[in-house]
Each structure stands twice: as structure tokens, then as C-alpha cells.
Design a protein around this nucleic acid. Structure first.
Lengths: 205, 205, 205, 205
DNA sequence: AATGAATGAGTGTTCATTCAT
DNA sequence: AATGAATGAACACTCATTCAT
């Protein structure tokens, strides 16, 4: 009866988990962790409050799951995309492009992700340690590319870590911009500009 | 009795306001708006909870005052500094430098300011409209400099708005980096790198 | 098919009832009525929560059944034992002995039984009326013996009811003592002492 | 201004504590710990729910305070009374008499006290250790008297501990009886009978 | 002017009970 | 017949705000 390893029950459980997580992301994105209520999440998921607790042991756990799930997916697509790129230039472009498209698709997750950086080190940061792992994975992609680029002279001499940080933050900033609806241009244009700025800087000839 | 327009009472009132605001900034920076309690703020200010309500009508108002106060000061120093700079290059450098030094001095305010960008448009965003004013003021400083720079050919052809956004976000990112204690280098080094990257980009020759 | 009046179905139903009751006694003894959860009982009985409700209409009913079942058994063995004893002295001794041995065997039931006396008249006391019947049955055994003893002059003149109460409570106390593990002596010694004290009192010659 | 060491505030605080404790005892006596709600206690005390938490940190703490307060008072009056009695016989009589009168006056406390013995060793028994102290104090009063009595030959040879236990339990039983309203006789009669039974036992000559 | 005691609405979490499968 | 997912009412506890002193 179990089809491809999953019983009907497994499917339902998985579905509920996803359903609640989805709703939670929406609510957390809107209100932030503290101002989101479990009741709201339940309602958004179309279940009763008690049902939420059948699938997650606490509000905090839902939050962390919502955060982690997105981070795992993000890191995976980033790693795949960067690895597939053939030059330093293309690796950095791939990083920016993939991240922007990913968040364009997962706006709710972006808000949660972004909020977590603000609080980073602060109070809810029970996760701090776990979060760092994902941060480091992203950093590694960039520092590797940058160091490689410097060896090949396609990038000028720069401190790799600080530079990677800058790219990370800049990319995040541009995404924020778009998601707040403050940007009129198309996504591809935005990506081009982001990369262009990063690569060439402001200076004229 | 009223000396330079202020009675003794006025002075006390002003003092209390400042005292509470200062305490509030500390607490809000630590905990965020929702997780900060008025009791904590009162305690940090060394007054009773009821006293806080003599000076501010609500928790939200304290928050907004704390935010606005910092924004006014920030915009003022930025405008002064940028106006005083003589070239496009120096104007942008001055912007970055002043902002970084300002936040280095007002870390509590930075946390609040930063958090507000996350929520921007979102829930507490009663302020949205008011916040925008300060955002626009900062943007104007940069877009003016950029457009001027493009006319003088010291900056290559770029969309002024998007570029200004990028500078804003990148600067904020570097500050975050420092305030989270993730950066080892000195402040002046950080400023130099930030400007250097922005100006020249990554590309080798 | 129905063998001595019971179909296979009847046997199963009876078996389930007993199984659940047994588990319930364990749980109620441990946690008390309010702090015991139906889930725990179901788990202890090795069935699903819903199954419990196929056999008992409510948590309260399980409790009452657990209580009543024990009380019926207790009263029966007490009546048999006391009836079998030939003298007043032996009847009282038999009462104490049988009760102590019964509870030594049914510790879980004792805890429930004991707790019910505390609450007696109080909140869950939906049972009050039903409980009284069992109380009266035990009392009757003792008052009969006592009154008979007084007629035969083997017991001095005493108010039968109050005296019976005293014996009841004293016996219960000694059992409590043992079940809480506060007693080091063997069960037979304890019984002897209990009877000896009751019969002779404290007084020296 | 502080009169006999107490400011007006101290008096109020003390009053509220007492008021809430009083109400809590009533409610806990009626419903038991688990079935009592803080809301009920607040209502019984004539204050809002939040107010209760200004005076006690948790439901459990209220309970423990209610229990401890009574136990301290009980032990004190018992010790005073027993110490004041001049013979073994009178010491034991004093113990019984004082305890019965104390509980006659503090019926609510008795229910709580009694319930705690049922659960003793069981779940809420965070107190177990603290409770034991009071138990030991009562036991000591009796064992001292008993051992002394045995030396003077006014009590026959008996194991002091077990005998003390028996007196404790028997006394408690008689009190239960009265408080449940199952006894028709006056309190003094009940005390006399209790002592008489204990001292002389059942046996006719 | 300042206090802090009092309030009560709101939140996370549990659990007896129901019911579709 | 048995399951266990779903429900929602109930509860302990918190906290912004009010107000008598």
C-alpha cells in the first residue's frame, strides 16, 4: 500500500506541515515573530488553534522551521548556481541573480529572513548558532569566488571577507528595495544594475 | 523668572523627556518594540511606570519619538557634511563616513532604525508616511551628488535613484557588520574600503 | 456459538473494559483525577484515545468505574472475612487484616480511594451518594461487630458509630503509612500492632 | 511617619496578601489545586486576575503559601499546648484537643492539608521535602511524649514511631469525620472519645 | 509632579471530546 | 471495531494603560 515509501497518513502529515508553515510564513512576514499570534496562523492555515500544536510543539518552533526551511532551499539553489558558473564574474553574477529571483518568489520568507538579521545577536536569537551556519555557507561561496578571481587577476586586490560581506548586504538591500515596492524597473534590469555597480563601481573613466 | 524663554518647569519637563527617551532607546534596541515593556523602560529611566505616561501618551509614541529624534539628528549631520564637501567623490565619501561615525556613536538608535526598515510597510508602520520623509532626505543628498557627478563625468552614466539606494543599503550593511561585532578592522579602514568598493567596483584592470 | 452466554464479542468487550480500567487506575493513582489525561490512560492501555471513548463515555466515568470496581471487590472480601470470623475480637481483626492485605495488593486503587475521601462532599463529588453506599457497608460490618461485642461484654461501652469510624480511619492511616513507604516493618507486624493498639489502647497497667 | 515599623504601604501589601490567601484557601479547599482557577481565586478575593500576580508569582506559590502558613500556625499551637501539659496522658490529650480545635477553626486549611497527604510523594509534591519538616515536628511531639510515658510506665511498651503515626492518623480521621458533617456529637465529646479510645482501647475488662 | 497598585484584554498552550476514515 | 486527526473551550500568566493618593 505504501506508495513510493509514503503511506496516505504520511502524505497528510506532510501536507499539514506545509500548509501551516506556509500560513505561518505569511503571518510572520506581516507581523514579525512577537506580534504574530498562533491563532492567526491557525486561521490563515484554515485549521483550529489546537491543530497547529499537533504539528509543531511551539510558536517558536514554527518560526524556526519557517526560517530554516527557506534557508536550506536558498543555500542549495545558490550553491548549485554558483558552481555551475564558469568564471569569477559569472559566479558573482549567478549569486546575485539567483538570490534575487529566489526572494522574488518567496517574499514572505524574505521578510522573516531579513528581520532575523536585525535581531541577530539580540533576544530571540536562540537560533544565532544555527543561523550562522547558513550565513557561513553563503559567505564561503563568495569568498571562494573572490579569492579565485584575485588569483586570476579578474578581481583587484581586496580583503575577501569584507568584500563578500559587502556583496551580501548590497544584494539584500536591493531585494528589500524591490519587495517594498520602491523600485519601478524590471527584475532583470535590477540584477544587471546590481552586478554592474558591484563590478565596475561608480567611477567614470 | 523665565530665563531665555524657559521656566524651571520647562527645563525639568525637557529633562524628563530626554531621560525617558534615552532609556527607551536602550531597551528598544535590545528587545525590539514588541518585546520591550514599559516597565523596563521606566526602570531604565529610573522613574515609575506612571511617570512615563505623564510624558508620553503611549509606548508607541515613545518609540516613534526615539526613532524620529535620531533621524532628525542623522539627517542634519549628513546634510551638513555633504554640503561641506567640494567634489562628487568627496560628497559620497562624506555621506558614508558621517553615517558610519554617527551610528558608531549611537548604536542603540541604529538598531531601532534598522529594525524599522525591516518592518517598513508592515505592521507598526503607522509611521510609514513620516519615515519616508527622512528616507527621501537622505536619498536627495545622494541623488543630487550622483546627478551632479554624472554631469561632470566623474561618475559614469547610471540611474541615479537605484544607485543612491545601493549606496544607502551598502552603507547600512557595513554598519550592521560592525555593530554585530563581526568586523575586526578599525572604523577608518572600514570607511575607506566601503568607499573604495563603491567607487571602483570589483573589477581588476 | 455463544458459550456460557457470552459471544466472542462480549468477551472482547469485557476484556477491553478491564484493560482500560486497569490502565486508568495506574494513571489516576499517579496523577489524581484532574492531572491524569485520557491520552495517558489510552497509551497505558495500549489503545488509541478514541478507543477509550468506545468503552467509556467520559473521563469521569472511567474514574468512577475504577473506583466502584475496587469498592465492590473490597466490600465483598471484607464481608466474607468478617462473616467467617467467630468472635468480636476476631471480626475486628479480620476486618483490619483483610483491608490491609487487600490494599497491599491493590495499591493503585488505594490511592484513588483515599483521594476520594479527601474530596468527599467536594467537587467531583458527583459520586457522593454512590460512595456512601460502600461506606455504609463497611461501617455496618464494624458497628454490628461492635454492638455484638458490647452485648457480650468483650467490648466496653462505647458509641458504636464513632468507634467504627475511628477503626476505619485508623486502618486507612496505617495503610497510607505503608504505601508511602514510611514503614519499615512487615505487613503482619503492622497488622498485629494495629489491632493491638485498637484493642488495648495505649495505657499501661 | 512609619508607625511601629510599618508604613501605610506595608499595611496594604500585608492586607492584600492575606486577603488573597484567604480567598485561595477557600477555593483550593473546594476544588483542589488542579481544579481551582486563578480567576476564581481573584474573584473570591474581590480583585482582578492581574492583581493576584502582583502579590504571588504563580498559582503554585499561592498554594504553597496557603499550606505553609497553616502548617506553621498549627505546629506552633501544638507545640505550645503539648509543652504546657504536665503528664504523658495530658500531653497526648492536649495534642488531640488542640489539633481538633485548630481545624474546627480552619476548615479550609484542613482540606488543603489533608489533600496534600494524599498526594504526598506524588506529583505536585514539589513541596515534599518542605512538608516533611512539619510532619516531623508533629511526630516529635508525640514520640517524645510516648517515650517519656513508657519510661514512667504510664504507657505500655510500644514502638514509639508506629504509635505516633497511629495517633496522628486517627486524629486526622476524626477531624475529617466532623468536617464532612458526618458526626452529630459536640466537639468536646468527640475529643473525649478520641482520647479515651486511644488511651484505653476497645477491650472491656 | 510622581507614584505604583489595579485592571482586564490578550497570548501560548493543553486536553476532553468528536468524528471521518 | 479501532483509530488518531481535529476541535475549541479553558487556563496560567503578562503587560499597556489608568487613576487614586
Amino acid at each position: 500500500m505504501p506508495l513510493n515509501g509514503k503511506t496516505k497518513r504520511d502524505v497528510l502529515v506532510e501536507f499539514r506541515h506545509a500548509e501551516i508553515l506556509q500560513a505561518a510564513r505569511r503571518v510572520f512576514a506581516d507581523k514579525g515573530f512577537s506580534d504574530a499570534s498562533v491563532d492567526e496562523i491557525a486561521q490563515a492555515a484554515g485549521v483550529a488553534k489546537g491543530t497547529v500544536y499537533l504539528y509543531y510543539p511551539s510558536k517558536r518552533d514554527i518560526y524556526w522551521e519557517a526560517l530554516k526551511g527557506g534557508l536550506v532551499a536558498l543555500c542549495e539553489v545558490l550553491e548549485t548556481a554558483v558552481r555551475a558558473a564558469d568564471s569569477t564574474e559569472n559566479k558573482i553574477r549567478a549569486f546575485m541573480r539567483t538570490k534575487m529571483l529566489f526572494f522574488e518568489e518567496h517574499r514572505d520568507f524574505f521578510k522573516i529572513y531579513h528581520a532575523e538579521f536585525v535581531n541577530a545577536g539580540a533576544q530571540p536569537g536562540c537560533f544565532e548558532r544555527d543561523l550562522k551556519v547558513f550565513h557561513v555557507r553563503q559567505m564561503r561561496l563568495l569568498t571562494d569566488a573572490i579569492e579565485d578571481g584575485m588569483r586570476r587577476r579578474s578581481i583587484r586586490k581586496l580583503p575577501a571577507d569584507e568584500t563578500a560581506f559587502a556583496i551580501l548586504h548590497l544584494t539584500r538591500g536591493v531585494i528589500t528595495q524591490r519587495l517594498l515596492g520602491l523600485s519601478r524597473s524590471g527584475i532583470e534590469e535590477a540584477i544587471s544594475l546590481l552586478f554592474d555597480l558591484t563590478w565596475k563601481g561608480l567611477a567614470g573613466k
